[in-house]
Amino acid sequence: MGIIDGFIKKVSGRNLKVVLPEGSDERIILAARRIKDENIAEPIVLGKPEKIAEAIEKAGVNLDGITVINPKESDKLAEYTQKYIGNRDDISEGIAKRMVSKPLFYAGMMVKCGDADTMIAGAASATASVIQAGVLAVGMAEGINTPSSFFLMVIPEYLGETDKPYIFADCAVNINPNATELADIALASASSAKGLLTDEPKVAMLSFSTKGSASHADVDKVVEALEIAKGKNPTLAIDGEFQADSAIVPAVAAKKVKGESTVAGYANVLIFPDLDCGNVAYKLTQRLAKADAIGPFLQGFATPISDLSRGASVEDIVNTTAITLAQL
């Protein structure tokens, strides 16, 4: 069984609810139908009735048995408006109502209020918009202020293991994170790994230096991020700074890493110092090691949600739903 089939099996039959706010897109209609018929989750489709009707027509399937909501006409609008305002004194009720009437934000409020378990969007929206809805409606996870992303990388064969999974972050969102942001990326990635990997997360903060072998401000940033992350989560297996080989090759770690480390050589969560490194690393791993690069997925929110690429296929939407729900 492939790794994605495993996630589908893990979530199927649990009646988890996924809200799909882009109901005017025929791919969303087709994906909702599959998610429902294959018993992966309970889909909820948002949109204006006339737009959904057009998408249904194009898709050639129906939404029988699937909940469809027009946010503007929803009887939850007043409740979501008040929840959106929360303790803020810098937003009027009128503006808040405008916000939660937008499908992405309505979906985010459904997740925040427990009316859905996750939201999957991005097939017809910019990543920036999905992140805005995540931050402002769903909210951030406790102790984390930086939205970020990760890839699930599946290496066909590595040191005698087949289909070895790793979490790579951040390879898509934060261009040049500072130490605090890098710590957030590490903590969010550990949380993502807990939901998706069989093994406990072992988080390596990567650098061009291993435990002080080089001196530079960029190394200092990684060391500072490590200390911040440890301070926020003292029980997490996280260590660094490591060069990539010290992180994932036990023999190299044994030579280069002085002192005890439960992470060195055995890391399964790799945190790159910036987007240059992360993006280059995932693409090289994908091409040279023939790894499956599954993602990117968003992380750092109070509840996992996901962004789709504009070119997402129906299968991508279904798989993303399963992988996101598998993190719950």
């Binding site: 937003i91 503006i95 405008r98 916000m99 937008k102 920036a128 992140i131 805005q132 402002l136």
Partner: peptide, 10 residues
Amino acid sequence: SIQSVELVAA
């Protein structure tokens, strides 16, 4: 940048 969407709503 995250709150620019609220400016649009305003």
